[in-house]
Design a protein around this nucleic acid. Structure first.
Length: 865
RNA sequence: GCGGGUGUGGCGGAACUGGUAGACGCGCUGGAUUCAAAAUCCAGUUCCCUUACGGGAGUGUGGGUUCGAUUCCCUCCACCCGCACCA
């Protein structure tokens, strides 16, 4: 019994230094090897590394080290997503300048990264809050403006009253701000938008080609873009004499086949027509204000009653001038979808039905199920409160009578187009991306507002527009607005006094192109060189949390296309492969009074119950939840790495659960990983290493030969598991292989060289998972060079074939025993061996053997009856 | 409401194209070593009956296809996630 203990505290920093000195992870980019770009979503510099980071970057590191060993020129960079609101909050709370706070955090986090031993190329480090980065972003934006991909318009926006800024649709969750968690309000503001909708069709179509993305994310993007086919059509508005209202009301519908079931039109409270009418109608103005107050908050929408306001106007049916319907302002009609106006067909839309019942509007059935009696069906439908939204046959609909679903829609659209009442259109749920934020700590929008010239781009020669440092946070709102001089400039176009735009970009702007910047991070004149981007992009493997499925990941796909349009690069899709990892969770603990306790405040009593470590009071154990400060169930990575080392932390994280699933952090888990490392280390330290070269297999003891075979099996299994992101299975194979090596009796002929070969191979196979200890083993074995530079081994398929196989034997599909036969044994040999088993005989006894199914190498099934 | 996913021992999870369910680990039980503890090592560990041999049940539920189903098809249940008045 040796008490050799693996000294990670000495070993891990030593190899980290060796890799750095050797520039092991600096990509060459010289084209001598195929490229492989591995990227993890870059962190926001909060100042503290958390376990979620450790999991994310460990997963990426396994990919990077594995691909490097496989002979790729790996690009694996790191940087900082360093604009954002927390920096401003820190300024407010502690009086620290956001820049100082952010840069200090970056320095701290860089230090916390070091002991993880990640294979990062730090020479490419970027930080998005530095002018060196965002100056190029300003140029990109101006190019977008030039190309018509960025525009400014006044529009209704989501306003977060806590963050005092606008949010994009993607940043509103359940009617609440994604960070603040408070209900958003609606406001009308002048905003910059990026024309993501120009690419809606392409983004949607291309989701089908992203076959190395999780289906879930593709589906979420598909639904978010939300394509639907339908028609725009015009209704003539019959207005009181002498009024100056528009003549036409344009509506959007996906059901032109139900046009003959129309019983009203409804417009959004934010529709221009509603605003015009409200001018002379205080009751309507109140109604509109009411609707806006309710906003989009919560599930309130779910329960919110359908409410309408009768404008008194009527509209003329496009196919029948004598048919008039009332025009309502309705709270359920959205201004920013379609035309902000609809026609209501109560019989075939549940909302319209609810509305019709409330305001006593007609319900006209114009679609009946194929096999139903149309008259009886219509009678029941028109008397009830449930709309029929299914497929069926058109009735009471003149020229489309008798047609079904798609045919009826097509014919209706043809008629609409023929009569010049409108046209078939494709409508998307996706809206343009509003990028203006009324915040300080972001990239300034490089625009100057001039009374005579309007919004004027800052000339290239004046870029970058640098964020001023001398700002104050003593008042709410954007400090840039009240800065005494910064915004006062002369118009680049006419020279008159003008004002800088004080809005900054949404921070998703920075993360929409950083992967391209990593290809050429030091370029001062350009965001990136086109050739460099074309060389490295797309990212071969991107890794991050699923929470960005429709935010960052959609923006980045759009941005890359927009950059392509502007001639920056020649790729459309930024991320060829995407992997979304699960969260890191931990059990939660509560006092009987409901207050949260941290794991280190909880211990076990003698009877095994959870108790408070100080006073022994009982503790309630809750289920595992994502680590969070508020629930106090966090574990500090620095503490874990200081106690067990980086390899142990990595090993546990990789082995516990499949990487895409949530994992639970446990003390026993990390200890188990630590025990394994020590076992592995003892195995190497306790056995002679100078074992000579591998002799011919037929001169070795069979047990030694088995180890050679097990080695090739391990190569095959581990390689496959690493290729397919089944890292927990990879760890299991490594451990199984380790067990096999440990069981080999070294006294046997050929055992020592076999063992050496096995351990050497084990070191290579385990290296991507636990890089430090395997590097130490490599050196201890006296092998040349760094393990990090070694090539990945290949297995010999011939050695995977066994001479003898064990087959399961079933009787009527139930397992009754096993037989050992030669691998090449024919079916009849297997059958008679199976029938000879006493346990089989006992089952067969007294019955007739009907047939014996033999699947070579797998199973024998005796069918009796 | 719509869309998607998941369900296997006490726990995390394995199981290639349908072919010996529970690999690997955690935990637990017993033993060795130790003055003792830690560490380590050995044995066992799906459940039920049986000293054993052996038998029965078993992958959320109920059915189906098949010689054979964790795997394929249908029903239902539970949990999780996304979207949510998108006309």
């Amino acid at each position: 019994m040796s008490d050799v203990r693996y000294n990670f505290k000495e070993v891990e920093p030593r190899w980290q230094k060796a890799w750095a000195d050797n520039k092991s992870f600096v990509s060459s980019g010289d084209g001598s090897k195929p490229k492989y770009f591995v990227l993890e979503m870059f962190p926001y510099p909060s100042g503290r590394l958390h376990m979620g980071h450790v999991r994310n970057y460990t997963l990426g590191d396994v990919v990077a080290r594995f691909r490097k060993a496989q002979g790729f020129d790996v690009l694996h960079p790191m940087g900082w997503d360093s604009f954002g609101l927390p920096a401003e909050n820190a300024a407010l709370e502690r009086g620290i300048h956001p820049g100082t706070w952010t840069r200090q955090n970056i320095a701290d986090m860089r230090e916390q990264f070091e002991p993880l031993g990640l294979s990062l190329d730090w020479s490419r480090e970027i930080s998005t809050c530095e002018p060196a980065y965002y100056r190029h972003e300003q140029k990109i934006f101006l190019d977008f403006v030039k190309a018509g991909l960025a525009y400014r318009k006044e529009s209704w926006v989501n306003w977060d009253p806590v963050e005092n800024t606008v949010l994009a649709n993607e940043q509103v969750v359940d009617g609440k701000g994604w960070r603040s968690g408070v209900a958003v309000e609606r406001r009308k503001l002048n905003q910059w938008f990026l024309k993501i909708t120009d690419y809606a069709e392409d983004l949607l179509a291309a989701t089908e080609t992203l076959d190395r993305w999780p289906d879930k994310v593709r589906l979420m993007q598909h639904n978010w873009i939300g394509r639907s086919e339908g028609a725009r059509l015009e209704w003539s508005v019959l207005k009181p004499e002498g009024t100056e209202l528009p003549d036409k009301l344009e509506v959007f519908t996906t059901r032109p086949d139900t046009l003959f079931g129309a019983s009203f039109c409804a417009i959004s409270p934010n529709h221009p027509l509603a605003a015009e009418l409200a001018e002379n109608n205080p009751a309507l103005a109140d109604f509109v204000a009411d609707c806006n107050r309710l906003g989009t908050s919560e599930g309130a929408i779910e329960k919110a009653e359908k409410k309408g306001f009768d404008t008194g106007l009527t509209a003329q049916h496009p196919f029948d001038p004598d048919w008039e319907v009332p025009v309502y302002v309705a709270n359920f009609v959205l201004m920013d979808y379609g035309t902000g106006a609809i026609f209501g067909c109560p019989a075939h839309d549940q909302r319209d039905m609810d509305f019709a019942r409330k305001y006593n509007l007609p319900v006209i059935c114009v679609v009946a199920p194929k096999d139903a009696d149309p008259t009886a069906f219509a009678t029941e439908l028109e008397a009830g409160t449930n709309a029929f939204t299914g497929d069926g046959v058109a009735v009471k609909s003149e020229f489309i009578n008798g047609m079904t679903g798609e045919d009826a829609k097509r014919v209706a659209i043809e008629k609409i187009e023929a009569e010049k009442n409108g046209e078939g259109v494709v409508q998307y749920r996706l809206r343009d991306w509003g990028v203006s934020r009324q915040r300080y700590w972001g990239c300034p929008v490089p625009i100057i507002h001039c009374d005579s010239c309007g919004a004027v781009p800052v000339p290239d020669t004046d870029l970058p527009v640098i964020l001023p440092d001398d700002v104050t946070f003593d008042l709410p709102g954007n400090p840039l607005v009240r800065h005494p001089t910064w915004k006062r400039v002369s118009c680049p176009s006419c020279g008159k006094a003008a004002e800088r735009e004080t809005d900054t970009f949404d921070t998703f702007f920075e993360s929409s192109w950083y992967f391209a910047r990593f290809c050429d991070p030091k370029n001062e004149t350009l965001g990136f060189d086109k050739a460099a981007a074309n060389q490295w992009l797309p990212v071969d493997q991107y890794i991050g949390g699923v929470e960005h499925a429709v935010l960052h990941l959609l923006y980045a796909r759009f941005f890359t296309r927009a950059l392509q349009t502007c001639g920056y690069l020649d790729v459309a899709e930024p991320f060829d492969g995407l992997f979304t990892q699960g969260m890191v969770g931990h059990e939660t603990y509560k006092n009987p009074d409901g207050s949260w306790l941290s794991p280190d405040q909880v211990t076990q009593s003698e009877s095994g119950d959870a108790i408070h470590i100080d006073d022994g009071t009982p503790v309630l154990i809750g289920r595992s939840e994502k680590m969070s400060k508020s629930k106090k169930n966090t574990v500090d990575p620095a503490y874990i790495i200081g106690t067990y080392g980086a390899d142990a932390a990595r090993l546990f994280m990789l082995s516990d659960s499949p990487p895409e699933r949530d994992m639970e952090w446990t003390d026993s888990g990390i200890e188990g990983a630590w025990r394994y490392l020590n076992r592995l280390w003892r195995m190497v330290a306790e056995t002679p290493i100078d074992a000579g070269s591998l002799p011919a297999l037929d001169t070795m003891d069979t047990a030694a030969v088995e180890i050679i075979k097990a080695t090739h099996k391990a190569i095959a299994h581990v390689t496959e598991a690493l290729e397919t992101f089944r890292y927990n299975a990879a760890v299991a194979h490594i451990r199984e292989f380790t067990n096999a090596i440990g069981e080999l009796n070294v006294e046997l002929t050929g055992a020592l060289p076999a063992r050496r070969f096995a351990v050497e191979t084990l070191a290579i196979l385990a290296n991507p998972l636990i890089p430090h200890i395997t590097e130490e083993i490599w050196a201890t074995l006296g092998c040349n060079g760094l393990l990090a530079d070694q090539a990945w081994p290949k297995h010999d398929p011939a050695l995977l074939v066994e001479d003898i196989v064990t087959l399961g034997v079933q009787v009527n599909g139930k397992m009754r025993g096993t037989i050992e036969v030669a691998t090449e044994a024919d079916k009849s040999t297997c059958a008679s061996a199976a029938l000879a088993l006493p346990t089989v005989q006992a089952q067969v006894d007294g019955k007739q053997v009907r047939k014996v199914i033999v699947i070579p190498g797998k199973i024998v099934n005796v069918v009796v009856g």
